[in-house]
């Protein structure tokens, strides 16, 4: 599928899509993460889990059923082969490691794999919903977020300042500038997005990171 990526969110969603494998059970957070399926290559089909109680989340087709919404409360559909269950079972799937991958937005992430995305003290306290369970239980946690906050400050930090959603839970951070992997050795810059140079990423990233082999090779050539 060839699509023109015109804005940062599309660049991020398209890159995240490459992490999804055929048959994966995937839970997508609200907002940017829900764009990811638009960029799945032909032949890669994933099963979307909706934490309010089903697998097989699909687009709304035909009439709205008021009893069928996604985790953002929006009218949705369920694909053939899908299944409904209660919230205990839904979180057994999530916490029990039966969800292969979750993609969540972030307010901040840091080089130790911490994620903050559920509250800004004094400003925004919506509650964590299912996010804390997802980052704890999903086999792989991808943070899909823009590299900088609206005021230009880095969202990839040495250490998160906001209250955490999860400690040491992040596997991969995908922004419109770069892809970072959290490893035991530290944060590794795995890729530069197309047209982005290392200096820009260094300048816009507060966290300390190791330059990964792929980026090193690109720099040499």
């Amino acid at each position: 599928m060839v699509q023109t990526l015109v804005n940062p969110k599309q660049v991020i969603a398209a890159r995240v899509a490459k992490e999804l494998k055929d048959g994966d059970v995937v839970n997508l957070g609200i907002g940017l993460p829900t764009m990811v399926p638009n960029y799945l290559p032909d032949g890669v089909n994933v099963i979307l889990q909706s934490e309010n109680g089903y697998v097989g989340l699909g687009p709304l087709e035909g009439e709205i059923d008021p009893d069928l919404v996604n985790a953002g409360g929006q009218p949705s559909g369920i694909l053939p082969g899908g299944a409904f269950f209660d919230s205990v079972f839904s979180f057994e799937l999530i916490r029990g490691g039966h969800v292969d991958l979750t993609v969540l937005g972030g307010l901040e992430a840091d080089q130790k794999g911490n994620l903050a995305n559920w509250m800004v003290p004094g400003k925004m306290v919506p509650g964590m919903g299912g996010a804390m369970d997802l980052v704890t239980g999903a086999k792989k946690v991808i943070v899909a977020m823009e590299h900088s906050a609206k005021n230009g400050s880095s969202k990839i930090l040495e250490e998160c300042r906001l209250p955490l959603t999860g400690k040491g839970v992040v596997d991969l951070i995908v922004t419109e500038l770069a892809v970072f992997r959290v490893t035991e050795e530290g944060l590794v810059l795995e890729e530069l997005q197309e047209g982005v140079n290392l200096e820009t990423v260094k300048e816009k990233t507060e966290a300390t990171f190791i330059i990964g082999p792929r980026v090193s090779l690109e720099l040499i050539s």
Binding site: V88, M132, D133
Partner: peptide
């Protein structure tokens, strides 16, 4: 956390003294 809330209610109805969850550790 939503999964914890569900489990706490389940425990309340299931005669359990609570549940042990990794969710929320370090937060």
């Amino acid at each position: 956390p939503q999964g914890t809330l569900a489990e706490r209610v389940r425990a309340g109805g299931a005669g359990l003294g609570g549940i042990l969850t990794p969710t929320g550790v370090g937060t």
